[in-house]
Deep mutational scan, measured.
Amino acid sequence: GHYRIRINGREFEIRGISEEEIRHLEEALRNGADEKILKEIVDRLRG
């Protein structure tokens, strides 16, 4: 998958993330885990 997200007015492209991972992120966001989720995304993109 290849997705664009906007955070604090800046747009980011996220590549190589699966539909299942996105559902997991959405679930966590609904549970209020904003900073933790951003850290997970950044860590994943770093490799």
Rank of each mutant, 00 (worst) to 15 (best):
G1M: 06
G1F: 13
G1D: 10
H2C: 15
H2F: 14
Y3N: 02
Y3D: 01
R4I: 15
R4W: 08
R4F: 14
I5R: 00
R6W: 15
R6A: 05
R6D: 02
R6K: 10
I7F: 09
I7W: 07
I7Y: 04
I7E: 00
N8K: 03
N8L: 05
G9D: 03
G9M: 01
G9Y: 01
G9H: 01
R10Q: 14
R10I: 15
R10T: 11
R10F: 13
R10N: 06
R10S: 06
E11Q: 04
F12C: 03
E13N: 04
E13M: 09
I14V: 05
I14E: 00
I14A: 01
I14L: 14
R15T: 06
I17T: 03
I17R: 02
I17N: 02
S18Q: 04
S18P: 04
S18H: 04
E19I: 13
E19H: 08
E20H: 10
E20I: 07
E21T: 06
I22V: 07
I22M: 06
I22N: 01
R23H: 09
R23I: 09
R23N: 09
H24F: 15
H24P: 04
H24Y: 13
L25W: 05
L25K: 00
L25R: 00
E26L: 12
E26S: 05
E26I: 09
E27Y: 12
E27G: 06
E27N: 11
A28S: 07
L29T: 03
L29V: 14
R30K: 10
R30P: 02
R30N: 09
R30W: 08
N31W: 10
N31T: 12
N31G: 10
N31E: 09
N31H: 07
N31I: 09
G32Q: 06
G32K: 05
G32V: 06
G32R: 06
G32W: 07
A33N: 06
A33Y: 07
D34N: 11
E35L: 12
K36M: 11
K36V: 10
K36R: 13
K36G: 08
K36D: 10
K36N: 11
K36F: 12
K36C: 08
I37N: 06
I37W: 09
I37C: 05
I37Q: 11
I37P: 01
I37Y: 12
L38P: 01
L38F: 07
L38R: 02
L38I: 12
K39W: 15
K39M: 15
K39G: 08
K39A: 13
K39C: 14
K39V: 13
E40K: 08
E40D: 08
E40W: 15
E40L: 14
E40F: 14
I41Q: 02
I41W: 13
I41T: 04
I41V: 06
V42E: 03
V42S: 03
V42P: 01
V42G: 03
V42T: 04
V42L: 09
V42A: 04
D43P: 03
D43N: 12
D43L: 12
D43H: 14
D43Y: 04
R44K: 10
R44C: 09
R44N: 08
R44W: 14
L45V: 06
R46N: 15
R46M: 15
R46T: 15
G47L: 14
G47H: 12
G47M: 12
G47R: 10
